[in-house]
Write a protein that binds this DNA or RNA. Sequence first.
DNA 1: GTCTATACCGCGATAGAC
DNA 2: GTCTATCGCGGTATAGAC
Lengths: 223, 223
Amino acid sequence: MAAGKDDLDAYGIPVVPAPAGAASRKRRAIVDAALTEFLAEGYSAASMDAVTARSGVSKATVYKHFGSKERLFLAVIGDVLRKTCADLEPAGQAIAAAPDLRSALVRLTTDRARILLRPDVMALRRLVIGEIDRFPQLGRLWCRVGHDVDDGPLVEALTALDARGDLAVPDPKLAARQLVAATVGVPQLVRTFSPEAEIDEAELERVIGSGVDLFLARYATGA
Amino acid sequence: MAAGKDDLDAYGIPVVPAPAGAASRKRRAIVDAALTEFLAEGYSAASMDAVTARSGVSKATVYKHFGSKERLFLAVIGDVLRKTCADLEPAGQAIAAAPDLRSALVRLTTDRARILLRPDVMALRRLVIGEIDRFPQLGRLWCRVGHDVDDGPLVEALTALDARGDLAVPDPKLAARQLVAATVGVPQLVRTFSPEAEIDEAELERVIGSGVDLFLARYATGA
DNA sequence: GTCTATACCGCGATAGAC
DNA sequence: GTCTATCGCGGTATAGAC
């Protein structure tokens, strides 16, 4: 049992450190192959044989690196989830300082929608939702990094706008959820059940814009 | 190959007629056991052995009735999905005639939320989402009977209200999606990633009421 | 229609040479 | 670290008696 092999991060997902050097390339190949396999088949139907075949290494090597199918799944999905959604981090910080609030909200929600609606992110989301009972840690991780439920920076920005009088938001946490639901949530729901649906750019802009208008009609001050 | 064994309904889901009599009880036991097993384990990890054990019949009987794991899954999930969401059918018909529009919208969305947020319905939803790639028919079926994406009656009601001048709704289809997203969608999203979260009745009323207010702030006429 | 028993396969995980 | 070869188990589906 190597040192640090059972370390868990704040979300209960095993941290498997990547060794530098020649083995690192094989490790990368395993991770890539595993992600493809898990996204295509789901956790249970995914085969470790298929992962080894796709990655070009032997099965023993896979187990030397990750120990078990469950640890491989958590490491791979957790990593890609963190990386993919890292773009969402600097979310609502520019909102409070923006001259035109509507434009700022449209830009914020549109940027988020572009990322969250990407086919690979949607597939990852479906996989996480389907395996929630088996891996509750991934659900908690998705909520935090993807801000699918709570968005800290956005809540803070709405609170600041309320204090300044630019908006009248009695419950910023609820308002943030409503804004996200009325904008990103609408096309996201459609694509959740229709993976093959295309993203019409003009339609997306129209939906997002209408959602922001919905939000502002309720929370904008007369000023 | 019995007659009608390969009949498909409008959604591409096999229709397996239930014979009346003594065998009907066994069939019911199989369906109940299979639903429990699939909801608990997902499609791939679900075991036909576990289904037979839970239902108290032999494995051969299960295969005599349903032919394969795939057909059993489609039949069971499709049936329960239709039955569960049948309560949602008479959706927006009473809206247009209601004296108090806000109360009517709150009642409509609250009723829907109560059904869609039930733990068993949420679990079914997670299962369908996770198996969308394998069974696209279930995604299409969910969209229709659950009105998770499009709600025909609600769209018609909004169109009528717009024509009468009670609301100003330029795009009823989009408005219907926004109403659902801003009300039911908010707690639904939370519980999608947190199966164990409880439904606080007071909190639900507050969220739904706020969502309806959001909707009316945008679409209500001055009158 | 229903049962018991089993064919047959692919799975996750490991042993031991190098 | 990496390989080949294999173990043991549990999976779906079927055969044949009743």
